[in-house]
């Protein structure tokens, strides 16, 4: 499987799901960092600037990092 993944990466055919996951992780880390330094939640544009991606990518990739079920759990517990 590792070989297939490497092949996909080299070939420029990285799957969307994988790329979103990676950016999603960076978004989560950056959000925590900025929340600490700013003393409030960052805006979408502030995040985009720090991560050097477009605001649309923040919106898109932010999606994968939070599974829907966690919402119910947080509210419930």
């Amino acid at each position: 499987i590792g070989e297939i993944q490497r092949f996909l990466r080299d070939d420029g055919t990285v799957k969307v799901s994988r790329s979103i996951k990676e950016l999603g992780n960076r978004i989560r880390k950056m959000k925590d960092e900025l929340t600490k330094t700013l003393g409030r939640t960052p805006t979408v544009n502030e995040m985009a600037k720090q991560l050097e991606v477009s605001p649309e990518e923040i919106v898109f990739a932010g999606e994968a990092s939070r599974p829907l079920t966690s919402i119910h759990e947080t509210v419930y517990e």
Binding site: L8, G12, T13, V14, K15, V16, S17, S19, I20, F60, E63
Partner: peptide, 14 residues
Amino acid sequence: AAFIAQVDPTMEEL
């Protein structure tokens, strides 16, 4: 892009 992403295309296609 979000609509197409459901079928998990390559980044290039997206």
